[in-house]
């Protein structure tokens, strides 16, 4: 497998995205905004359709579409402050509508590569962008991690302590939009939002603290991205779909482990009595 250049590059990108996705995804999980990843993924698809129809680089139009969508979601969240999910649904619906209509005029092979991903067909530009974006996300998490944690735990209390929550929220959402746009090209827009959430959902089953949960989610994400890619190579399955199916299988396994652990601890407590 490693004798092929495209597989070596695909593995590097899988590891990098495996690190980046839960780092930006954990915040939306904690804020109960997991579906915003879905809205952004569909927006990236609308951006791709616009790019293909207009003859522009679809990667850039996907990035722009994600950033614009995020701004609209934020605007609508403020407009419907008590029904914050309304903004997500509006953007999701609009994105599906635009992507659906424009896909008729775009080359279907190109459009499908964004729909289902093409991790084994990564260009040099995409590789460089993935390296840069992941480095920025890791640096952002290390430098502002405590402040992000503070804002996620209680935004009002963080504001009182002068944590720059607005700037950090904006920077985080920008990084999230860029990750979704780039990740959609690699693993597919249909599965990218799942990979933002699933590793965190698995890590949450182990009931650890904030930092340990984040580290666990990164480890699970890298393992499922790499494992899914290798499995897809040997089984001749589509990489994006294999990665996300493996992540779901790991989540189900974590439910089982968690259940067995709680039964064991109950038995131990009863024996102690």
């Amino acid at each position: 497998m490693l004798q092929y250049d495209f597989m070596r590059i695909a593995l590097i990108v899988a590891i990098l995205l495996g690190v980046a996705l839960p780092l930006v995804g954990s915040t939306i999980v904690h804020k109960r905004l997991s579906s915003s990843g879905d809205a952004l993924a569909h927006s990236s698809l609308a951006g791709v359709a616009i790019g293909l129809v207009a003859g522009l680089n679809p990667l850039w139009t996907a990035v722009i579409a994600c950033v614009v969508s995020f701004l609209i979601i934020e605007l609508l969240r403020k407009r419907f402050s008590k029904y914050s999910e309304v903004g997500i649904v509006v953007v999701l619906s609009a994105a599906i509508g635009i992507a659906g209509i424009l896909s008729r005029y775009a080359s279907s092979s190109n459009f499908d590569s964004y729909l289902f991903g093409s991790i084994v067909l990564i260009s040099n530009l995409e590789l460089v962008l993935t390296v840069v974006l992941t480095s920025v996300i890791v640096a952002f998490t290390l430098l502002f991690g405590h402040q992000i944690f503070s804002g996620v735990y209680s935004e009002n209390e963080a504001k009182v302590r002068k944590v720059p929550t607005r700037v950090l929220n904006f920077a985080h959402s920008l990084l999230l939009s860029l990750t979704v746009a780039l990740g959609a090209k690699v693993v597919g827009s249909l599965v990218i939002s799942s990979m933002l959430v699933l590793p965190m959902a698995v890590a949450l089953q182990f009931k650890k603290g904030y930092w340990m949960t984040l580290l666990l989610s990164v480890a699970i994400s890298v393992a499922t991205m790499v494992g899914g890619l290798i499995a897809s190579y040997y089984l001749d399955f589509p990489p994006g779909a294999t990665i996300v199916s493996l992540a779901v299988a790991v989540l189900l396994l974590s439910f089982l482990i968690r259940g067995l652990m709680s039964i064991a601890s109950k038995n131990k407590a009863e024996k102690a009595k």
């Binding site: 430098l143 944690f149 735990y153 302590r161 002068k162 720059p164 949450l204 650890k208 603290g209």
Partner: peptide, 20 residues
């Protein structure tokens, strides 16, 4: 929320400056 008692208490020390 997945946070330990000491992690949450530590949030009281987080202000406007980034902290590694």
């Amino acid at each position: 929320f997945p946070a330990t008692v000491e992690e949450v208490v530590g949030l009281g020390l987080i202000g406007n400056k980034p902290k590694l």
